[in-house]
Design a protein around this nucleic acid. Sequence first.
DNA 1: GTAACTGCAAAATATTTGCATCCTT
DNA 2: AAGGATGCAAATATTTTGCAGTTAC
Lengths: 137, 137
Amino acid sequence: MTAAQTLRNADLRHTNGREEVLNLFLDADHALSHSDIENGLGPDHDRVTIYRTLRTFVDKGLLHKVLDDGGNPKYALCRDTCASGHHHHEHVHFKCDNCGQTTCLDQVHIPAVALPEGYNRKEMNLLIQGVCLECNK
Amino acid sequence: MTAAQTLRNADLRHTNGREEVLNLFLDADHALSHSDIENGLGPDHDRVTIYRTLRTFVDKGLLHKVLDDGGNPKYALCRDTCASGHHHHEHVHFKCDNCGQTTCLDQVHIPAVALPEGYNRKEMNLLIQGVCLECNK
DNA sequence: GTAACTGCAAAATATTTGCATCCTT
DNA sequence: AAGGATGCAAATATTTTGCAGTTAC
């Protein structure tokens, strides 16, 4: 799916900025932070607009916030089943302690976890930290 | 274990501020953010000192950062096996979408997860979101 | 006494809001 | 044309750094 199609599907207007941000995510195989995006886009992009773009994309279900141990939030594309307001209920991410990249492990599934009585589960996020494939070479 | 003992064990000097922060955590059954602490302590505590206290406690293995989807970082006590620099390798937290509290589920364990070839695992954090016991009543 | 800790001021960073203008539909 | 999106300025929030003074040991 192209950026243009994605935007149309999400009921969002097609603007240069949005298309470029979306393409960054489509090209990246890992989660991006605000500053990753600012860097990736070249110099003449407004910080504020990027904040708004990210928020809009999350609201519309194009992106989801990725859990991170460290400082600033990262975002990653939602795949298939994510619709507006209804995200995937399960995310598994791997963060490399060496290179700092966080990647989605779509193949990995979280096994059943027994919650104590009285708790409802809506979403599960698993963050695994260690050393990634690249950095292990 | 009292706050005073804990500080001594960690090779930290015993000061009022540290003891009070530690007691907040000992009393709380959920993770605390910087502002939770600022509120919990009463008015004459320096924001900067709290930042430094939190960092020191994390460094010494008394606290660990709790993953959160949302905004600002939260912290929780490390239990038993956490020593300086060597945290528990597995954390399970439950965040209530209703009241916002994040609690450690020490009883729950993460079942084995198969990582793709070439990945090393050092630590796993599972965040479950839903509605907690209290809010389900 | 000495090193560690604190408190204040200030810097650096991150994020949000308001508003006038521009652009997509 | 109309509403949504942008860009700039500025407000607000968050976290870090420097340094002088204080305190635990």
